[in-house]
Design a binder for these strands. Structure first.
Lengths: 214, 214
DNA sequence: CTTGGGCGTTGACCAAGGTCAAGCCGAGCC
DNA sequence: GGCTCGGCTTGACCTTGGTCAACGCCCAAG
């Protein structure tokens, strides 16, 4: 990990990122580098500037659950109380703005900052709840289809790129890499999506994808 | 549903329940009565006084995911933005305190109230994230074992009573009632728990239950 | 150009859990 | 008591997705 002390105008427009620019550090993380660790104390909050982040949780025997993926503009690390319940790692080389929670708290009262943190937490909860439904009640095919839908909706333009590998997708969806791979093949066979290499695709039949995603 | 306008000292000790006592209505819900509905506008917040509540989400073909269970002292209905993403129903005849969000907002600035709402939201998120791990990566037996553990930890004293039926457990854990039933039989066969009727049990071997729950 | 390693795909087989159907049990009712 | 109804359990069988192993592809290093 490397540090860069020079904030520059670049991030975004929200009050929060402005405050974080002022109070925070810029930090670079290499692909797969740990940002924070499950069960360690949580006193930093992170804003993704570029790259992407995953949060993961390990069972004692090594089974892994990916909690969520975070993209530029997303806040990471407020999902917890005093102890991180998930670890976070960079999906690819990433630049994050880091700020102490206690420093942010001095801006409590700054209504815009409060609201931004509140909104981010609310969104986090909504995503988790959506994820519950996917994990609990969808079939492998539906899981993969809804995952691709989500990505496609986030990106807007085609082609859509997958910032994560198959293992991360599998651990996010509660599947194995083999099953993810088979479902992708199947979706492609049905001309629902088309892959150009294994990290890039476009949607050929939105209606079908939507239907499969339930 | 019936209304009762006379607040009485009974609920709890938190600032929030005091405020809700003052601003809110007491409402009784019968078993399985709907408290609020998926996709409807969310402008009320509920505090469970007695009884219990489940939140559920339906897929178009009828598959159901139970999001969470709520017991006396828990806040229901802040899990959302403007639209409820889950429905809520009473597990048994229940008494809730109901208050308009907008009314609560007039207490924004009342630090104790703010903090209580914030804490409740944080807890909600933590529970959802714990639930993700269970749904994504645990086996049927582990799911049921961790469910019983959670209940046992919540209650403290034995015997522990199950306020919900098998279908609710199954929909919470992403299983079928048959599988839940089989796992309960199996746990009983292994002398890990002992059921006295299908809604009441005690833990015979805590170590074993803990180990099975992972 | 060749090699090797990492990641992804495919196939054959297996098992956990789902499905379907029957039976059981306790509670309320006549 | 006997009946009935709903919720729970059990059993036989089947399907989905997991496991294990082989193979392919791409790219970086030599």
């Amino acid at each position: 990990m490397t540090l860069a002390y020079a904030p520059s105008a670049h991030v975004g427009v929200t009050a929060l990122s402005e405050v974080m620019e002022r109070l925070g550090l810029r930090m670079n993380f290499a692909k797969d580098e740990e940002i924070f660790c499950q069960d360690e104390e949580a006193d930093l909050t992170y804003l993704v500037v570029s790259g992407a982040v995953r949060t993961t949780r390990l069972l004692s025997d090594g089974r892994r659950q990916v909690g969520s993926f975070y993209y530029p503009g997303d806040l990471v690390g407020l999902e917890t109380g005093d102890i991180h319940r998930f670890s976070a790692e960079a999906l690819s080389d990433s630049l994050l703005l880091v700020v102490k929670r206690s420093a942010l708290k001095t801006f409590a009262g700054d209504e815009a900052v409060d609201r931004a943190i509140w909104e981010a937490t609310r969104r986090e909860l909504e995503r988790a709840q959506e994820h519950l439904l996917v994990l609990g009640r969808k079939t492998a095919c539906e899981k993969v289809a809804s995952f691709l839908m989500d990505l496609a909706e986030r990106e807007g333009g085609e082609p859509i790129s997958l910032p994560m590998g198959r293992q991360d997708m599998a651990d996010y969806l509660g599947l194995t890499i083999e099953t993810v791979s088979r479902m992708l093949t199947q979706l492609q066979g049905a001309s629902v999506v088309e892959f150009d290499g294994c990290r890039r695709f476009r949607v050929k039949r939105w209606d079908a994808l939507e239907r499969l995603a339930e």
